[in-house]
Design a binder for these strands. Structure first.
Lengths: 344, 344
DNA sequence: ATAAATAACACAATCGGTTGCAATTTTAGA
DNA sequence: TCTAAAATTGCAACCGATTGTGTTATTTAT
């Protein structure tokens, strides 16, 4: 039952009557080691089941080949896509991933940042918790000049790169689309506007309204946690309104779906009575009936882009990027949920 | 731009004119260090922004407080739920998570296992790739007696614990339910039966048929990758059949949904023409119309259970569990997609 | 045949933190 | 005031791998 002892380069060295230095160099295919010796080293290493100790190497080399990822939650379609994208790119270049979720709490976020720092990750990829309002908890990273990349839910900082979409524009497009379909009483269901994503979407929403001389109504903006349940809740309050809205732009697909389902149950017709537009192009948008108009942008791609940027930064010491922000493409996908004027 | 140097216990020791030993002990709240000294140490540590170096500590202590996770893919509702559950439990006990995806390839799985070993994780949580047929690539772990826990997609091994549901029973229940609803020509859409999960589900399906004297038909079993697209593909071939099936039991919700959508588009009525049952209770089951009958089991819980088991194993040296398999609860949730005989 | 160049390998310090044991200081008791 | 016991603290080795520099063989050139 006792654990077998760790196999080290010293074991190989002893058995081969050479120094650990030679073994180390041999395993790294160093040119000053003879072919014959290398062969012996590799063979014995294989035979003994030797595997390099990542910690020892990291300690000595002062780099870990590991990235840290902190996201609000792991179990959302978008976030897990991002992570899959990151994993894909990171793996290609031999980087491992240390992953934590903040559960939308800035306190837990800060604690995760500390853990990541303790693990001396070579870089950090972060999507901020909904209640994070400042970046003090990243100071350790900034001070040591360890790259931090924020994606999707970002916050500007001179020492870090932001990767996101143009939320304002996307929201503007979605709202304008609803207006063009004849909607005039358009609600906006979203999350607390502390975060750029929601603030910008609200801005785009307002902008589209303004441009079409539709008066902005404070009571048409509903702040929720954007869960599917929250959507159902909002549906209830919508049903209590004297005059129903004729369009709803939701910051998130699953919340939109929750709302639609609840409304449909009460006989509201979509899009005839109320048109809907969501955000994210979650798979569920193509299952709900009518299919949900939404903003499409690829989490997988965002993850890849973020990871690749980080890799460049880390691998190339001379990589001095003045890049501050990377805006990814996003597009409005029009589906039946918003087509009041019949199919195109 | 130059990175600031690492702050170590030696820096603290020097400045305080004490030894590194004392600093180390002080930071660990060791009883033999005086309160006064501890206070000074903590204060200076805070001031200098000292953070313990995880690698150095791991190297010395021969444990990393890190678990490795390898899953077929990260971006599925079930898997991301499991991971969220693992993260939750692990975080409570101060464990970090190193995560990799095998992308359903046993080759990449093996490579991830090596990486995890190199990182000297204290334990491994694995859900196997669809084409993994043996566990040789885990030998390093078994030899060193590092705990490996398999969940959901498992394979029996004397040195490891399996956490899963009773797939046979669940499939039996689902199939029997379809039969009870009057189905006689029941198809089964699933994945390659190399893996326990699919093998057992097939077994349960057959068992239910047999018990009701329904002849098993080889051509009623369709092997796919269980994606939503695959579901749509199967729909096409179903439509070509001379006699349509009157029930379909799918090993996965999103595949079932893909199939249902495609069939509905061609005018097939569900459940009247064909009844459906899925597996996993993915959120999409409650969005599709009619809502999808399915097998419910919590990925989040499975993750928590797996992580807790691993933590017990790792924390308590004397923990000698003879546990070999943990079966979690699962249940059939009946929804409209299978109710041919009207609502209850 | 001899000096000079090259190839192949080893020494020893280092990365940051931990710990058994020895050494020192403080406190208490007589 | 002196000594034994208790409380603090320090020394030095260790975890496993890496690397600048030095050393010893082996070639090559002259």
């Amino acid at each position: 039952m006792a654990n077998e002892r760790e196999v080290t380069i010293y074991d190989i060295a002893r058995e081969l009557n050479i120094s650990a230095t030679t073994v180390s160099r041999g395993l790294q295919d160093h040119p000053t080691i003879s072919k014959k010796t290398k062969k012996k080293i590799f063979e014995l290493a294989e035979q003994l089941g030797y595997r390099s100790n990542h910690f020892a190497r990291s300690l000595r080399n002062q780099k870990t080949n590991t990235f840290g990822i902190i996201v609000p939650r792991l179990n959302s379609h978008f976030m897990s896509s991002v992570i899959a994208g990151i994993e894909n790119a990171a793996n290609e270049h031999g980087f491992s991933l240390l992953i934590a979720q903040s559960s939308e709490s800035s306190v837990k976020e800060a604690s995760s940042v500390r853990t990541m720092f303790d693990s001396r990750v070579d870089g950090l990829l972060v999507s901020l918790a909904v209640d994070t309002t400042e970046l003090n908890h990243f100071e350790h990273f900034f001070k040591k000049n360890i790259p931090v990349i924020f994606f999707d839910r970002v916050m500007p900082h001179e020492n870090s790169v932001n990767i996101l979409i143009d939320n304002r524009q996307a929201a503007y497009n979605a709202t304008r689309h609803l207006i063009e379909q004849g909607c005039r009483r358009i609600m906006h269901i979203t999350a607390p506007t502390l975060q750029n994503v929601y603030k910008d979407r609200l801005k785009g929403y307002k902008e589209a309204l303004g441009e079409h001389k539709i008066k902005f109504r404070e009571d048409y903006v509903v702040i929720t946690n954007l869960s599917q349940e929250a959507g159902a809740e909002v549906a209830k309050s919508i049903l209590k309104m004297k005059t129903l809205p004729d369009g709803v732009f939701v910051s998130n697909d699953s919340c939109a779906v929750g709302c639609m389902l609840a409304l449909k149950e009460q006989g509201i017709r979509i899009p005839e009575d109320i048109a809907f537009a969501g955000f994210n192009n979650d798979p569920v948008t193509q299952v709900i009936e009518p299919h949900l108009t939404t903003i499409n942008y690829s989490g997988y791609e965002m993850g890849q882009v973020a990871a690749r940027h980080l890799i460049n930064h880390v691998k190339d010491v001379s990589f001095v990027s003045s890049t501050n922000t990377i805006i990814l493409r996003s597009e409005l996908i029009v589906r039946a949920s918003s087509l009041k004027k019949g199919r195109k």
